[in-house]
């Protein structure tokens, strides 16, 4: 029997240091908030259950969910289309795992669900220079007219795969990537933000 409860270690532990980084003068052009407490599930519609699943997902977030690369959110729960018939559920915050389990219970009939949260790293990147910083590695067009609020895409930066979604028009981008390469991605991200000044928080 175990002697003590085991504790989590986040992907960027020992690497990320909260505070101001890069250029120190003036307002930070980029703000990065690393969200450590996340629970994530991959949701795949069971055969013939796509429509039914969409209804369940829409009920969860109180808004229509489409089988498209779009992100819809309510409170701490977001649903993002990642490929035809497949979505990613992300729950943020202290009760994320419990909230996700409740959501999964609702999905059992119409979907096959696989938990993935431990292998991922999530950061919100915002600020007036967020687009410029992200363009230093992300090839897709992030212009507000091309990548609108709610848009989501699977792309890459610095040769590392990632999912990007636009949460709001501040703009705030949600970036999700693999935990194993979080250190390398972080090195690129902070380097890219450096010239604009960057506030990092958790």
């Amino acid at each position: 029997m175990a002697e003590a409860m085991l504790t989590k270690r986040f992907a960027l532990a020992g690497i990320m240091v909260p505070g101001r980084h890069g250029k120190l003068i003036g307002e930070a052009g980029v703000t990065i908030r690393v969200v450590g407490d996340i629970a994530v599930a991959h949701v795949s519609a069971r055969k013939g259950q796509n429509a039914a699943l969409l209804l369940v997902l829409a009920r969860m977030v109180g808004a229509p969910v489409a089988d498209q690369p779009q992100r819809v959110a309510r409170d701490t729960l977001s649903i993002t289309g990642i490929s035809p018939g497949q979505w990613r559920l992300v729950v943020r915050g202290h009760n994320s795992e419990a909230t996700l389990r409740a959501a999964i219970a609702e999905l059992q009939e119409s979907a096959v669900v696989t938990e993935l949260g431990d292998g991922l790293f999530l950061a919100d990147i915002s600020g007036p220079r967020a687009r410029a910083a992200l363009a230093k590695g992300i090839a897709i067009d992030l212009h507000p007219g091309a990548f609108k609020v709610g848009a989501a895409a699977q792309t890459s930066a610095s040769h590392i795969g990632l999912h990007l979604a636009l949460i709001d028009d501040k703009p705030t981008f949600e970036m999700i990537s693999a935990a194993s390469t979080a250190g390398s991605l972080w090195s690129w991200l902070t380097s890219s933000c450096g010239e604009y000044g960057c506030d990092i928080s958790v």
């Binding site: 020992g14 230093k136 040769h159 935990a179 390398s184 690129w188």
Partner: peptide
């Protein structure tokens, strides 16, 4: 660009790396 020295390419670390 950024891809030189330790950033020449991405490295993957296991959870027990540290």
């Amino acid at each position: 660009g950024h891809h030189r020295s330790k950033d020449f390419r991405a490295t993957r670390l296991t959870p027990a790396h540290h």
